[in-house]
């Protein structure tokens, strides 16, 4: 009898261990699966949907600016970019782009630290050291090509968002394009943190540096604006929605995102963010 009770006890214990193990496995799997954002929670109730809507009280004014930017793109920026692409070889444009992003390292570093992205901050620092020394002042990017340390990006609008700041009303700036109150403040703050602010340069020189790096950036990306316009029925709403969701996704993903560097897609579709960085 004692034997039997021991047996059942052993069986129970075994089952318990099995259960715990399976639970363990399940939780482990859950953790490893947590690196990707959960997009399945989008079945919203009516109130939630209304709350998630973008606040755009300045829509009539924003639409005028959007039209202005559209004309500016087709009459000014696009021909300029085509000419620049034809004159300056791609390799050189890539080098210039590397130099500009290397110079903006302090801005990205401060923001990764403020967001608690320690690993990314380490990568940003390492990249700066390696690329400044081995990449000749940052014109080359051996950190990415040799060490596999791809560029990271972080901005102050994103930092404010991680601390829970709301987007505020939607704004469409002339030339800069889609933005909102939070990201506009972020843009100003990031500019203040930029090394160029502390170098002894005239404002005219600073402006031409910004304009130059902007054009260089555009020259390296595809024609996303035109694509967006071709596929949408209301390009203003489409870009507003895309900007909003894109920024929210960026605020949600901190830490292990390996693809957090600025992609060519952002540069043109959302120029407000990356212009100065």
């Amino acid at each position: 009898m004692a034997m039997i009770s021991l047996n059942t006890h052993a069986v129970r214990l075994f089952l318990l261990v099995c259960l715990l193990c399976s639970f363990e496995v399940a939780t482990v799997r859950d953790v490893s699966g947590g690196t990707q954002p959960d997009l399945l929670a989008d079945e919203m109730s009516e109130e939630e949907e209304a709350a998630g809507e973008i606040s755009d009280p300045l829509e009539p004014l924003n639409r005028v600016v959007f039209e202005f930017n559209d004309k500016l793109y087709f009459w000014g920026i696009k021909p300029l970019r085509t000419g620049y692409r034809a004159v300056v070889p791609r390799d050189i444009r890539v080098c210039l782009g590397n130099f500009v992003s290397n110079l903006a390292t302090p801005v990205v570093l401060i923001n990764t630290l403020l967001q608690g992205r320690w690993e990314d901050a380490g990568v940003v620092l390492t990249r700066f050291g390696v690329n400044t020394v081995l990449g000749v002042y940052g014109f080359g990017d051996p950190a990415a090509s040799e060490l596999g340390l791809t560029p990271r990006s972080a901005d102050f609008g994103q930092t404010l968002g991680t601390y829970g700041a709301g987007a505020g009303i939607y704004l469409c700036w002339p030339l800069f394009g889609p933005s909102n109150v939070r990201d506009s403040i972020g843009l100003v703050a990031d500019n203040i943190a930029h090394p160029l602010t502390y170098l002894d340069v005239e404002s005219a020189q600073a402006i031409s540096f910004s304009a130059g790096s902007y054009l260089n950036r555009l020259s390296l990306s595809s024609d996303y604006y035109e694509e967006m316009k071709r596929y949408s029925l209301d390009p203003y709403v489409s870009s507003r929605e895309a900007y909003h969701e894109y920024r929210n996704a960026r605020i949600g993903q901190k830490g292990e995102n390996s693809h957090s560097q600025s992609t060519p897609a952002e540069t043109e579709m959302f120029p407000a963010i990356e212009t100065q960085l």
Binding site: L233, E241, Y246
Partner: peptide, 19 residues
Amino acid sequence: INIEGVSLVRNYMEQFKTI
């Protein structure tokens, strides 16, 4: 399809709402 946080369905949905 969701590319970089931007949902295709939602993007069209919002455009259509205004229209």
